[in-house]
Every structure is written in structure tokens, then in C-alpha cells.
């Protein structure tokens, strides 16, 4: 069974919801990524989404763009991201790691080669922002062939037919983007999210994670009341930005632990 499925099964048994923090690999430098990953787990992360930096992050807002630029300036590459996962697995064999990024670095390495290397490194799922299901048949097959989960996005604008299409190819979980916009955008409307989820649940039995615009414990609590997982990205990157190399782990730990408390409150 995949690490992602076991994680969700375990949480389900405990009656808890998942917390999925996102950080960009190599931000602010490669040396800090590994300690940050372990910090996320200590603070209560159930799955880690690890961003693979790309020169043209078209779906990301300014915060994650800056994280990508910092990481690339320090020489982060897809190969080095995979090495970070190898290093992470030396001491953590339990926490699922999902790579999140754009198609081109993966295609430059070669789909099959990437899938084999990622599985070998201990990656559990891959979300390619600019691979919608219609362009991801080969990708989905290559990822599944290596025992990993291809993760896909759903949006407020996704029609019933598109949700079905995603359900047919996704595994692990689906990631519902709570608003039309880029990462790090402002206001999240919990009510609007709640209204969309039944349609998604009708089409897929996979756990549903919700992200984009979740910045604090109280929003996390309300989202945990309706979804299976809460995804937090830009807010964590901002915390890293505000910190020094020395204070980053402590600050991120405090922030994520607070959001964890929110997730565990589970307000309806």
C-alpha cells in the first residue's frame, strides 16, 4: 500500500484530518530544506509537498515565485530535489512526500527516467501543475507503474465531466484549489468550498485536500471540518522569508504547530 493511502487510512481511523504543508526545495538554500522537512513532521505534518523550482511558475503568486527564484539562484535542480528526498528517507520512512512542480524539468529529465528515479528516492506522489488530465495519460501511467500516486488539481470552475476525468486518472488524493487565482491569493470562501465538495465526493472516493488561501489555524479548522486534508503553502514560505537561517526551523515549527491545532479542532 502507498504511504499516502496508509497515512489517510490511519488518520481516518483516528478521526483526524491531514495537514499538508508545502515548501519549495532549496529555499532559501539546499542546506535548510532537510531540517525544514523534519521540522514540518515534528510540527504535525502528515504529508509534505515539496516544490520543485521552475523558472516560469505561471500558476504561482509572488510568494512562491520568490521562493523558486531563491532556490534556482542557489542552484537547485530536479536531480538535487530527488537527492534531498533520499536524505530525508534516511531518518523518516513514514511521512509521504509529494513533489509539486511544472512539466518542463520532468520532461527534460525524461518521464520514465524521472519516475524511476523518484520512486527510488522515496517519493510517494507527484503533482505537475501544468499537466491537466488530458495531457497526462503517459505521465499518470509512468507514475503508477512505479507505485507512486499522480495527484491532480480540481478548481471551482471544474465541470462534472472534468472531475470525472480527474477521478479516472488520479490516485492518493485530489487537491481542490479553493479559488480561481494563483497561489498565495487572499480571501478563501469556506462556504463556497463546502458547496463544491459534494460534487467531487460523488465522483471520487479519494481523499480531498483543500488549499490556496489558508493562512491561519482558524481557517484551517473550518476547512478541516469539510475536507480530508488542509494544504498550506505561501504562509509557510512567508515565515521562511521573514526568518534567518538560524530561526527558520523554530519559526516554521511554531506556525505549523498552530495550524495543526486548528486542523485538530475541526470546526463544522
Amino acid at each position: 500500500m502507498s504511504r499516502i493511502k496508509s497515512a489517510f487510512d490511519r488518520l481516518n481511523g483516528e478521526g483526524r484530518k491531514a495537514l499538508i504543508p508545502f515548501i519549495t526545495a532549496g529555499d532559501p538554500d539546499a542546506a535548510l530544506t532537510l531540517p525544514l522537512m523534519h521540522t514540518l513532521v515534528e510540527a504535525g505534518a502528515d504529508v509534505i509537498e515539496l516544490g520543485v523550482p521552475f523558472s516560469d511558475p505561471m500558476a504561482d503568486g509572488p510568494t512562491i515565485q520568490r521562493a523558486s527564484e531563491r532556490a534556482l539562484a542557489k542552484g537547485m535542480t530536479l536531480r538535487k530535489v530527488l537527492q534531498l528526498v533520499v536524505d530525508f528517507r534516511k531518518t523518516d520512512v513514514k511521512t509521504p512526500v509529494v513533489l509539486m512542480g511544472y512539466a518542463n524539468p520532468i520532461e527534460a529529465m525524461g518521464l520514465e527516467k524521472f519516475a524511476a528515479a523518484a520512486a527510488q528516492a522515496g517519493v510517494d506522489g507527484v503533482l505537475v501543475v501544468d499537466y491537466p488530465p488530458e495531457e497526462a495519460v503517459a505521465f499518470g501511467a509512468a507514475i503508477k507503474a512505479q507505485g507512486m500516486d499522480p495527484i491532480f488539481l480540481l478548481a471551482p470552475t471544474s465541470t462534472a465531466a472534468r472531475i470525472e476525468q480527474v477521478a479516472g486518472i488520479a490516485s492518493g488524493y485530489v487537491y481542490y484549489v479553493s479559488l480561481a487565482g494563483v497561489t498565495g491569493s487572499g480571501a478563501l470562501n469556506v462556504q463556497a468550498v463546502a458547496e463544491r465538495l459534494p460534487l467531487i465526493r460523488e465522483k471520487t472516493g479519494l481523499p480531498v485536500g483543500v488549499g490556496f488561501g489558508i493562512r491561519d489555524a482558524s481557517t484551517a479548522a473550518r476547512i478541516a471540518g469539510i475536507a480530508d486534508a488542509v494544504v498550506v503553502g505561501s504562509r509557510i514560505i512567508e515565515e521562511i522569508e521573514k526568518s534567518t537561517t538560524e530561526t527558520a526551523c523554530a519559526n516554521v515549527k511554531a506556525l505549523v504547530a498552530d495550524i495543526r491545532r486548528g486542523v485538530d479542532e475541526v470546526k463544522q
Binding site: 505561471m58 500558476a59 512539466a103 501543475v129 501544468d130 499537466y131 491537466p132 488530458e134 495531457e135 491532480f152 488539481l153 480540481l154 478548481a155 470552475t157 471544474s158 465541470t159 472534468r162 480527474v166 484549489v177 480561481a180 487565482g181
Partner: peptide, 22 residues
């Protein structure tokens, strides 16, 4: 119909843009 010129073209965007493109 899907916007492909042989292996090129297509629709490589995040799900959030599909509504607008449709």
C-alpha cells in the same frame, strides 16, 4: 480538436484556467 499539432501544442495549464479556455 484538443489543440495538438502532432506532438506539439495542447493545453498545459493548471486546472484553474480550464473554465476560461472552454
Amino acid at each position: 480538436a484538443k489543440g495538438h499539432f502532432g506532438p506539439y501544442g495542447g493545453v498545459f495549464v493548471a486546472e484553474t484556467l480550464f473554465g476560461a479556455l472552454d
